[in-house]
Design a protein around this nucleic acid. Sequence first.
DNA 1: CTGATTTTTTATTTAAAAATTAAAAATAAT
DNA 2: ATTATTTTTAATTTTTAAATAAAAAATCAG
Lengths: 95, 95
Amino acid sequence: MLFSECQIDTATEVLKSISHPIRLKILCFLLEGEKNVGEIEQKFGSTISNISQHLTVLRKADIISRRKDANFMFYSLKDKNIIALMETMKKLFCQ
Amino acid sequence: MLFSECQIDTATEVLKSISHPIRLKILCFLLEGEKNVGEIEQKFGSTISNISQHLTVLRKADIISRRKDANFMFYSLKDKNIIALMETMKKLFCQ
DNA sequence: CTGATTTTTTATTTAAAAATTAAAAATAAT
DNA sequence: ATTATTTTTAATTTTTAAATAAAAAATCAG
């Protein structure tokens, strides 16, 4: 078999976290570099509370990290594995 | 922006479809070649009805296709994009 | 034709995810 | 200190997905 039970669980959690239109858009946006919550909200609409909750989902799945600056919170992609996955997605779904 | 609205929708649908432990395992299993519903059910447990429903989800997302032979239904991976995605997943999550 | 096998479909129940709204923290500005 | 800004958290409602069980199709074997 390709995956162990534990790898299946990890992969499922990551995939589930990025399987939402808003979260997928956020991840694409973060490919440009770190952004604060307001910038993300302005870019994609929805409410800032809703965006914040989606960011929490991504953060709990270890996909993004954040840095505080005054009362702004800057979010960015956490590791190069996620970037690699996004690049593959781009190649497969954006021709 | 990296994705258009429509590409986001397509990508989200595909990701959502594969973001389930049983469905992810089925896809791995199908990397070996086509299998019928009973073979999949035996491999991973659950009920045959449940497996059939998961296969329907994958089929509606255009990820797998099927071929009828008597009263057996053989399923297989539909395209190489999905295989490429699975290979990337393997590289990223199975080290 | 009858009964057995394989799979799908439908209906119901249960559980999880998403959106909305309101309230709460934390910091900054006056 | 008070007020405004930015973000998070919590509570509620709504929506969607999953599992289970039962019934229905389709084909095969006798």
